[in-house]
């Protein structure tokens, strides 16, 4: 088991509003899971809590990641252990080049894995391979992190980072939101290129359309802080057809 989430409960730190109310999820190496659900169900909160964002406080439950207690780790430690979050809104960092950012990040991973640091030249070569693999623009490395990027470019930059960092588990937080069909294909193509029998994905999304390109092994419906239904790809199709109304009706809190 790569990820084992048991009875996870979390609230917004500031308002103490409970968002996750006992969530269970098991992900094996190489599996692709889709987490779908209506707005406000807790999808992005789940992604944020797993990545370690400080705005949320875990009040109960456990998360085991590759045999270690994930909740005990700082965000950077989680990343170093192989957890990757693709952001719904990748952040702009003026003045920091993608190259400096990624060289620092890649070397942080390598340190964790007991590998020697990549110098500037080795890194350039390594990065060039990934840029070619994903068919991205060569000037990507020279630009400031996400500054002046379109929404699609920002998300492709996240996929590029994913390729460089070679994580074990990739959590895609509504990566499809706001993407046109071409950008969506490019992102999906990136994910499919990086998918292998060891690397797992959790795709958090409201819509089924990304799942046409990245076929999940398991589909879960998140509603009101819990996973209320799980199934195969047919569940995604069913939700696309009927929407979330039926599920909301069945599971509404009294």
């Amino acid at each position: 088991m790569l990820l084992n989430v048991q009875n996870l409960q979390a609230q917004v730190e500031e308002t103490e509003k409970q968002i996750l109310k006992g969530l269970n999820l098991e992900v094996k190496p190489g599996e692709v899971h889709a987490i779908m659900g209506p707005n406000g169900a807790g999808k992005s909160t789940l992604a944020s809590v797993l990545a370690g964002r400080e705005d949320y406080e875990v009040t109960d439950g456990s998360v085991d990641f590759d045999g270690e207690d994930l909740l005990d780790m700082d965000p950077e430690e989680r990343a170093r252990k192989g957890l990757f979050l693709a952001f719904q809104y990748p952040v702009e960092i003026p003045g920091v080049s993608n190259k400096l950012f990624m060289q620092t990040a890649v070397n942080a991973m390598r340190e964790e894995r007991g590998l020697p640091e990549l110098d500037m030249f080795d890194f350039d070569e390594y990065a060039k391979e990934k840029i070619e693999l994903l068919d991205m623009r060569a000037d990507l490395l020279e630009r400031s992190v996400n500054v002046g990027f379109s929404g699609g470019e920002k998300k492709r930059n996240d996929i590029f980072q994913m390729a460089l960092l070679e994580p074990k588990l990739c959590i895609m937080d509504e990566t499809d939101s706001g993407l046109d069909i071409d950008a969506l294909r490019l992102v999906a193509n990136g994910v499919n290129t990086l998918k292998n029998d060891q690397r797992s994905f959790i795709i958090v999304t409201h819509y089924q359309r990304l799942l046409d390109y990245i076929k999940p092994d398991h589909v879960h419906v998140l509603y009101n802080g819990r996973i209320v239904k799980s199934g195969g790809f047919e569940l995604a199709l069913e939700l696309e057809e009927n929407g979330y109304d039926e599920i909301i009706k069945q599971h509404q809190d009294a």
Binding site: R53, E76, F101, L165
Partner: peptide
């Protein structure tokens, strides 16, 4: 911005410096 760098494995102090 800090969290974005942390989520890529860079520790908080290094992120703030950067």
């Amino acid at each position: 911005q800090i969290f974005y760098l942390q989520a890529r494995g860079i520790n908080k102090a290094a992120a703030m410096q950067m």
